[in-house]
């Protein structure tokens, strides 16, 4: 199905280019095509429907205002859109959780949600990082994945895996270095 994905990506890229020219019809079409995925990102990260709805509106306002900044050499268009969504959700989470940490310095840890492990159709690049992930110890690979997918902070991850904050920081930094080395091989 890679051909279909490529055509989809090309269409999304074309729509973003039209949106950069303030084309409202293209904006509607882009929303139609991508909002389900971006809403999924918001729901998973924010774990709150009202927050996700609020976030999705702000995300598409950012898409409208920043469409001109997208260039093909910045990666695939869907990756770019999801990065906008994740960054917005992360900002909301960090603001929210920063307040929570101030209230409760003992660090009450959110109950981790077991993510559905979907079998995914991966691109060749994606498969490479999955190969590299397998070279990490199991719990560290899981921590990397939870950090990305759920938007968990170092503190939350430390609580989840029952290790001190600094240990978690070391885990993830070493994992990132290993991943980078593996992919550069």
């Amino acid at each position: 199905m890679a051909g279909n994905d490529d055509r989809d990506e090309a269409e999304v890229a074309r729509l973003i280019a039209r949106v950069a020219l303030a084309d409202r019809k293209a904006f509607a079409a882009l929303y139609q095509r991508t909002s389900r995925k971006l809403f999924g990102v918001c729901l998973r990260m924010l774990q709150d429907r009202a927050d996700a709805e609020e976030a999705l509106q702000e995300i598409y306002i950012k898409v409208w205002n920043n469409a001109g900044a997208y260039r093909a050499d910045m990666g695939r268009p869907m990756t770019w859109l999801i990065a906008i969504a994740r960054n917005h959700a992360l900002d909301m989470l960090r603001r929210r959780r920063q307040a929570a940490v101030e209230l409760d310095e003992a660090g009450e840890i959110a109950d981790p949600q077991a993510g559905p492990e979907e079998t995914a159709v991966l691109t060749s690049e994606g498969r490479r990082i999955e190969d590299c992930m397998r070279e990490l110890e199991e719990d560290r690979a899981a921590a990397v994945r939870s950090a990305y997918v759920e938007g968990m902070s170092y503190l939350e991850l430390a609580g989840l895996y029952g290790v001190p904050l600094n240990t978690m920081r070391t885990w993830l930094r070493r994992s990132l270095i290993k991943l980078r080395e593996c992919m550069d091989r």
């Binding site: 809403f39 998973r44 695939r76 999801i82 990065a83 559905p116 994606g126 992919m183």
Partner: peptide
């Protein structure tokens, strides 16, 4: 950008849902 592209394979974990 490179990390974003590399880690994008995790994006498949986000299940699409209609807003």
């Amino acid at each position: 950008a490179r990390w974003q592209e590399n880690l994008a394979s995790f994006n498949t974990e986000y299940a699409a849902e209609a807003p």
